[in-house]
Amino acid sequence: MSKGAFQTSREIFENPIWTDVVKFRIFFYIYGNAVFAKEGVTIAGIHLKRGQYLRSYRNLQNDLAYMEKRAFKQYSLHTIKNKIDQLVKEGRIKIESTDYGTLFTVLNYEEYQGFERYEKNLSEQQRNSNGTASEQQRNNNKNDKNVKNDKNNNPRNRKKRVYDDNDPNKKLAILLFKSISKNQNIKEPDFDKWANTIRLTIEADKRTGKEVQDMIVWATSHDFWAGVVLSPSSLRRNFNTMQAQMNSRKNTTGNKLQNTGSDEYDDLGF
């Protein structure tokens, strides 16, 4: 087993996989032992990329042995294969047979790790804390007019943007809440705040309202993403990854998004 550490998000506790003990153990074991190094590693003449793990089903059976009533027990090979097939179907991993065992690839490995996102936040905090003494002095010498302008330009002091109930952004926010509520018990949010994030997803990220609407329907119906997309922020953050999966699934199956038959968003006009 590889030594070292890896990182995962607390969102795992809200994911449907958390309730399936056997599937969760198998996935977390593969994910936790996958190659972390960006340059990958070479094992038995096979180059493993970041997020890949080479292991036989028989070895997995031994790896996942557990203690029950003072006796070691193992999952059957049939159970392990069945759970891995489910993980493949759910888009969590893909598998490939080799002469040395099965090559597991953890899909969305970078998203699970999330190091770049956290490093970005840390670097921004570091830059904000590195102001020089002269800069601090200049800030202290600003006149009353500049101080007043600074207060007016502070996002905390800006007037909150309110969206009309007929605004498409707010309709999408309400659609997202209702779609999430079908699978999760969540408190009713600040719909104006949600609508603003939806607006940024459309305007800043250059997406159409129809694309956002379709993604809401797809993500909240997906076995994995339904447990991740619990707000417009997580929808926006994972949009590219989900869109790639959704398009890949379309190309493979030839199916279009399922029509839910709901009239809650049929009149959005996208």
Rank of each mutant, 00 (worst) to 15 (best):
residue 130 N to R: 09
residue 20 D to Q: 07
residue 224 F to C: 00
residue 158 R to S: 05
residue 65 A to H: 02
residue 133 A to M: 13
residue 129 S to G: 01
residue 122 L to I: 12
residue 87 L to R: 03
residue 213 Q to C: 00
residue 210 K to L: 12
residue 176 L to S: 08
residue 42 T to M: 01
residue 206 K to Y: 06
residue 11 E to P: 06
residue 255 N to S: 13
residue 7 Q to R: 15
residue 53 Y to E: 06
residue 23 K to E: 11
residue 62 N to H: 12
residue 190 D to S: 07
residue 197 T to D: 03
residue 134 S to Q: 13
residue 69 K to E: 15
residue 245 Q to C: 09
residue 41 V to Y: 01
residue 3 K to M: 15
residue 14 E to N: 14
residue 54 L to Y: 10
residue 114 G to R: 01
residue 217 V to K: 04
residue 44 A to D: 11
residue 173 A to E: 01
residue 42 T to V: 08
residue 236 R to I: 08
residue 158 R to H: 10
residue 155 P to R: 00
residue 238 N to G: 03
residue 168 P to H: 04
residue 194 W to M: 04
residue 111 E to C: 06
residue 169 N to C: 12
residue 149 N to C: 11
residue 85 D to V: 07
residue 222 H to K: 03
residue 242 M to S: 03
residue 201 T to M: 05
residue 185 N to K: 10
residue 233 S to T: 12
residue 161 R to Y: 11
residue 179 S to R: 07
residue 253 T to N: 09
residue 110 E to V: 11
residue 77 L to C: 05
residue 38 K to I: 08
residue 143 N to I: 11
residue 253 T to L: 13
residue 83 K to W: 05
residue 256 K to Q: 15
residue 81 K to V: 14
residue 197 T to M: 05
residue 14 E to M: 13
residue 67 M to F: 05
residue 1 M to D: 12
residue 196 N to T: 07
residue 240 N to G: 09
residue 38 K to P: 01
residue 248 S to E: 14
residue 184 Q to I: 15
residue 34 A to K: 02
residue 89 K to V: 06
residue 93 I to G: 03
residue 262 S to P: 06
residue 59 N to K: 12
residue 43 I to R: 05
residue 199 R to C: 03
residue 37 A to G: 05
residue 31 Y to G: 01
residue 114 G to A: 12
residue 140 N to C: 11
residue 62 N to W: 08
residue 212 V to W: 02
residue 205 D to S: 07
residue 2 S to H: 15
residue 15 N to I: 10
residue 87 L to T: 01
residue 197 T to N: 08
residue 112 Y to E: 06
residue 224 F to M: 09
residue 35 V to S: 03
residue 167 D to N: 11
residue 268 L to G: 07
residue 264 E to H: 12
residue 102 T to C: 04
residue 34 A to P: 02
residue 186 I to N: 06
residue 67 M to Q: 08
residue 106 V to A: 02
residue 168 P to K: 04
